[in-house]
Nucleic acid binder design. Structure first.
Lengths: 220, 220
DNA sequence: TCATTAAATACATACTAGTGGTATGTATAG
DNA sequence: CTATACATACCACTAGTATGTATTTAATGA
């Protein structure tokens, strides 16, 4: 294959193939050659021209996939005429979470946590980042400031809710549970969150229900 | 090296070296050769005679390390003259958790979740197993049966508490937080657990404090 | 009870296919 | 003409295997 006039297309192809493979086979289970083989005609030289390591490909692929979702969340919370409590509820409403889910469902990460251990580690890490630098903690603090939320341990509550939401309510790394069990988990989390001053709202149940439907429709 | 009259000594040496290396360098970061190099004189043939794959070594190493702890827990709960609620509190009392912690501290798994992603995945998986087949859920159900615990969603509560205890209160895969923050997390979890009917007891705070001291003393 | 033998075990040695990554070559776009 | 976008050829290293060899154990026979 000769030189491409638009190399960003090549980069996009690489990242598309990589994302799909990393999800299906895990990080260690996917070789650079596997990726190259999906880039018909292209060779390893092309890949290593655009990326300096397998790890960089992995990170780039997921950053790219996550970017629109992060953007979507951030824009949703940018509005001024909402209290912190309202924004918190909105964070777990279907409109916020479902786009993310559609992405995960499309990528189909392996339900085996060991096989997807690197993804799991990223979600784990991300749960802390999300609560620290991301949207959740700032929203809670906003709610405390405007008086709409009464929470004694905002940082801790944010971390706990993030962790449970990302690793327990999202059925990424374990076989999909029956719908009623996922709803029970959601209600359980909502009760626990309420105990530390966070009202996740009623819509969170619909969110879980919709997630379940998407997952189920995707054939899990 | 000639044939050993007591091959179980060889197996033990292999597992000791493997455990230390897997903790320090992660699964993928540790090669069979790394392990062999610590077994002075021994060769890869010996290792592959006793174990059929790297994965089997990994599992065997951790199963062996965990066995006495699991045993300790199980024996502690075997006694008859305790209510479920009392057993639950005991599960999170220092005497139950500290032995486990000493082990972890000795092994020093990397605080980088990505580097230790396989261990993280095992802890994640283990959190569900622990709540399902392990001690927590049975104890809760015992408490419900004897009337000492009132919990509407035992399975969900057990999973949530297990997850948070293993991935949030145990400082395995993240840099150690200041002591007061770890205590705040503990109190937060206790509050959340109480909201779904589980009283973890007052001793859980001492447990966290002791864990922190062990970690700190180990030079984290 | 004890030597002799046969078989099973505990390793060592030598090798393979495949891996992530690099060095270098070549053609094309700017 | 130069910088970029690739291709080709290669490297050290990996998990795992096939095979060889010495030693322990078990079986045998007296």
């Amino acid at each position: 294959m000769g030189r491409n006039k638009y190399p960003e297309e090549t980069v996009a192809k690489i990242l598309d193939a990589a994302l799909e493979l990393f999800c299906a086979q895990g990080y260690e289970g996917t070789s650079i050659q596997d990726i190259v083989d999906r880039l018909d005609g292209m060779t390893k030289g092309a890949v290593y021209h655009h990326f300096k390591s397998k790890e960089e490909i992995f990170n780039a692929a997921f950053d790219r996939a996550m970017a629109p979702i992060v953007e979507h969340r951030r824009s949703m919370l940018g509005v001024g005429n909402m209290t912190g409590a309202q924004k918190l509820k909105r964070l777990y409403a279907p409109e916020s979470v479902v786009p993310q889910i559609e992405l995960w469902a499309r990528m189909r990460p392996a339900a085996d946590p060991v096989k997807s251990s690197r993804l799991l580690a990223m979600q784990y890490q991300g749960s802390f980042d999300e609560s620290a630098d991301g949207c959740l903690l700032p929203v809670i603090e906003e709610g405390i400031a405007d008086g709409s939320i009464a929470c004694e341990c905002p940082r801790e509550a944010a971390e706990a809710v993030s962790l449970l939401a990302n690793l327990w309510l999202l059925p990424l790394f374990r076989p999909l549970e029956p719908k009623e069990r996922m709803l029970a988990r959601t209600q359980c989390l909502a009760q626990m969150a309420a105990a530390v001053g966070l009202d996740l709202g009623n819509e969170v149940l619909q969110t879980t229900a919709q997630i379940w439907d998407v997952w189920d429709r995707a054939g899990w």
